[in-house]
Amino acid sequence: MERSVVAAKPVIKVAALCGSLRKASFNRGLLRSAIEICRESINGMQIEYVDIEPLPFINTDLEVNGTYPPVVEAFRQKILEADSILFASPEYNYSVTPPLKNAIDWASRPPNVWADKPAAIISTGGGLGGGRAQYHLRQIGVYVDLHFINKPEFMLRAFEPPKKFDSDGNLIDPEAKEKLKQVLLSLQAFTLRLKQ
């Protein structure tokens, strides 16, 4: 009697980066919610938060014989090992934040560990909900060879009713959580497609 073998769905490893360093940041809250949604209702995908705060300002004087400072090497390894990337990108002066740009630049140094990875962007804030920062991040992604999902977009206007976040920066709006889940599912499907 032959046993039927069912191939296990591969686990997608996602590195999650937040452009805000503030502990109660709403954008950091989006990532906490994404991790929770993934754990509770998306099989075959794991999100790991990767902290960019310890990274020094990029400076090629810190590169010695083709190596980088240990904290930079550790960060680059996390990106290299990830199957895809999830950016939570607040908008500062119509663009991405300095800490996020710094992290992107470090990981783009030879060899570029962003290359050929699928990615998604989520953002929240006033005005357009971080939309202009997202478009700048997409432009940067062209050069570092990231492949962003196009739909669905997630730009959450944080200060319009109903209340979206609690006092600790945690996402509490059910509709926003559902939209966030759809982004994660799209990233998962796109990652699997590119892997094939």
Rank of each mutant, 00 (worst) to 15 (best):
E36Y: 13
P152V: 07
R193F: 15
A24L: 11
T60D: 15
N65L: 10
L17S: 09
I172E: 03
K151E: 14
S84Q: 12
F87D: 03
Q182P: 01
L137Q: 00
A119Q: 07
A158I: 04
G44T: 10
K177T: 04
I172Y: 04
M45R: 01
L31N: 05
I149S: 04
Q196S: 14
Y92G: 04
P110Q: 06
L62T: 06
P10F: 13
I104E: 04
P162Q: 09
G125R: 04
V11N: 05
G19M: 03
D168E: 15
Q188K: 14
M1F: 12
L184F: 00
I12M: 02
E73I: 00
E153M: 03
Q134R: 03
N112K: 10
V11L: 10
V144Q: 01
A176G: 01
Q77G: 09
A176E: 00
S123K: 07
D61T: 13
I122H: 02
P161Y: 06
G125H: 08
A115V: 13
I79G: 07
S95G: 15
A115S: 15
E63N: 10
G66D: 10
V142M: 13
P99L: 08
F57D: 04
N102G: 03
L55H: 10
A133V: 03
I140L: 15
K163N: 10
I35Q: 08
L55F: 08
L180I: 00
V144F: 12
K117T: 12
I42S: 01
H147I: 14
G19S: 06
M1W: 05
L30E: 00
F165T: 07
N102D: 05
A88P: 00
N150S: 14
L187M: 05
L156K: 03
A103N: 14
L185R: 03
L192T: 00
P152H: 06
P110C: 00
C38Y: 07
P162A: 11
N27Y: 01
F165A: 08
